[in-house]
Write a protein that binds this DNA or RNA. Structure first.
Ligand code: FES
Ligand code: FES
Lengths: 166, 166
DNA sequence: CCAATTGCAGATAAATTTTATCCATGATAG
DNA sequence: CTATCATGGATAAAATTTATCTGCAATTGG
């Protein structure tokens, strides 16, 4: 029941991009360096986000990634499902139909198993909670809760990166 | 983000045991056969449940497992955490402290990262939801929602098993 | 006491998934 | 035309999950 660490990378990348002006984009390499993670592997995640319509891609020199939608239209759930896939994390093998207590096939297994239902319900509240949090909400909070020196340092690095490529 | 299938086995075993009279116990082999799963591997899960105080163990001939607490005192969360371990499923590598945007160590990273907070919050609602569901709740619902023929077939098999060992 | 039954702990092996890298290709700004 | 950048596929290393085996301790019933 582990969530892969690329999720952390992906969300950080998206929320960084969400804070940039619309005309700016960052390359996969920039994003990797900024977060101190291996570029080739992060690239995979960025490609996935892009093919799922969360990021936009600009190819060619001075290309890179930017957010494909408004920050208020992208939730943490969108990012998580894009990277991890949207399959349920609990998957019922219908073991109730396997042992000696089982009835003939086609019999009365119309309703899902009570246990599976409970697990899925819990997963639903998890997803709902993540869907409530949009990138725009994070941006709001960042303004008030993060050390301004840190924000400046990050912004400077990005400015320098985007400048030096002109 | 997959939940291992032994969870399904473990919950089914516990809820089966929860429905039995207090003096009855089932061996690991019985439980494996009943659910059609490999005995040696299921045994591992049963051992874990037992060392976490969810199941009780009776050794020696006519020994086996029974529930260690009242069904109303065991939640799905208890079982899940016992098998999967109680670590958070999202684990934050503090990548915010790694890139060029990071400040000197010891600086202002007292509050957890906003992203990690959001992920943990979602995990909390998931756990809370699972903790609401007790084995006794499942037993209640089983009575009204499961095909009586199925219940009888299972009960007969168990009765035969526990008889033949006398 | 003895012998059979059962759970327990640890080592180990197979299978699968996650993590990571590389390269050939195509697009594009300058 | 050329250097930059994303893409998709292939591949490899590492970690985790799944599964099995073995020897040991506890207990019961005779
Ligand atoms: S049969 Fe899959 S959870 Fe019950
Ligand atoms: S640093 Fe780990 S989630 Fe932000």
């Amino acid at each position: 029941m582990k969530i892969s660490s690329t999720i952390e990378w992906a969300i950080h990348c998206c929320s960084l991009l969400a804070g940039l002006p619309p005309e700016v984009n960052l390359t996969g390499k920039d994003l990797a360096e900024y977060h101190g993670v291996p570029h080739p592997y992060l690239a995979k995640a960025l490609q996935t986000l892009s093919s799922d319509g969360i990021l936009m891609t600009v190819s060619g020199p001075r290309g890179g990634y930017k957010l494909a939608k408004k920050p208020s239209k992208v939730s943490l759930l969108d990012i998580v499902l894009s990277i991890e896939g949207s399959d349920s994390c609990f998957d019922c093998d219908e073991i109730r139909q396997k042992g000696p207590g089982a009835l003939e096939r086609s019999a009365s297994y119309k309703k899902p198993c009570l246990i599976a239902s409970a697990m899925w319900k819990a997963e639903k509240v998890w997803r709902d909670e993540l869907d409530k949090v949009k990138l725009s909400d994070l941006l709001e909070k960042v303004k008030t809760e993060v050390d301004p020196r840190q924000l400046k340092k990050g912004a400077d690095w990005i400015a320098q990166r985007t400048q030096s490529k002109k």
